[in-house]
Design a protein around this nucleic acid. Sequence first.
DNA 1: GGCATATAGTGGTCCATACCAAACTGACCA
DNA 2: TGGTCAGTTTGGTATGGACCACTATATGCC
Lengths: 199, 199
Amino acid sequence: MTLHHDSPVPLYVQIKDLLQQQIESGAYAIGARLPSERELARRFGVSRMTARQALQSLAQEGLTSSRVGKGTFVSPPRINQELRTLTSFSEDMRERGMAPSSRVVRAEVIPTDREIGARLHLAPKTEIILLSRVRLADGQPLALETTHIPAHLCAGLLEGHDFSRESLYEVLRVHYGWNLVWADQMMQACMPSAAERSA
Amino acid sequence: MTLHHDSPVPLYVQIKDLLQQQIESGAYAIGARLPSERELARRFGVSRMTARQALQSLAQEGLTSSRVGKGTFVSPPRINQELRTLTSFSEDMRERGMAPSSRVVRAEVIPTDREIGARLHLAPKTEIILLSRVRLADGQPLALETTHIPAHLCAGLLEGHDFSRESLYEVLRVHYGWNLVWADQMMQACMPSAAERSA
DNA sequence: GGCATATAGTGGTCCATACCAAACTGACCA
DNA sequence: TGGTCAGTTTGGTATGGACCACTATATGCC
């Protein structure tokens, strides 16, 4: 819980890494409130600006968000707007009575980059499944959907499934026991809390 | 050149907006050095931390980059890695002797969002052309390529062209007089310097 | 009970100051 | 000429203090 003042790693980075690690481990659940800037400063024996810098770098990576008068809270791991706008595309399509289909553009297991890893609250280099599909309505390509899923949560997902025909969420539900309502909630379901993991 | 201390807009935002405006107008060319933190602080009569915060927010949007001992410099307007990785896809494809083709997913004129606008050094809400295509090799979809071009630089681009058959860069070269070598340089060519604009 | 008021806590902004390492400048000397 | 060494400038880090607007809670009054 103490910092290394003689380390070449800046103090605010040490604090940020520590908080990020606690978020990733589930010590701070989604929506939970982190210690306030002043509390962190007191706890680590640094100035408020240093503690603030740590929280700011977390917020910059999308891990947290802050509100004046309330505090800093762990953000739900949301994938970029891309996915969200595309699920609304699917909504529109269904409402218009069009026949939805898909075309797999990319499907592979890769290590997370910093961006995606931070958004999903995963340690760097964690393997994820990348599934990228073109969405078509009545054969007309409408959008590209890119989905990132931590590999350890759905091992072997890419083998034995044709995602140009099968629904990703249907496969996850049937073969992996996930019950999902909305696509953009899937990323949260992919990141179990500490309680779920120990269960 | 003076700031409004009584404005609800924070001082560092005022300075940041002013610098951004000067970058977009070409007053600071690409690669040019911005005033140092201490110089800005002196010039605007603020503390160095405030001036620093302005420069940091610029860097955060990708407009500038800083190096210790040297200064802060205007970054070349680069589009996200997406485009770069995809052009390398095309490279790979050609080397393997595959037949490249395209399928237009999206093609429209939209106002820039904050992200893209900042990367291209454009004022907010500037209209850009969004062209999104699926790249195919021997009929196999390989990647999605999304291109953003300031609309005023290629007016009417989307009318009368079938980009599932025509090469975007070929059209830009023939119809708009641009001579491009590499795709990932196009974005720089789309952003003329002040000298080119007055010419 | 219901409502206004005081109080404390929070993030956001801003200040003045200080030290550090990297990078450049220029004077100096071999 | 060519290299060394001190001094300057630069962004990066860190301190400690201050005020603001917003939020929630507790207090007191009607």
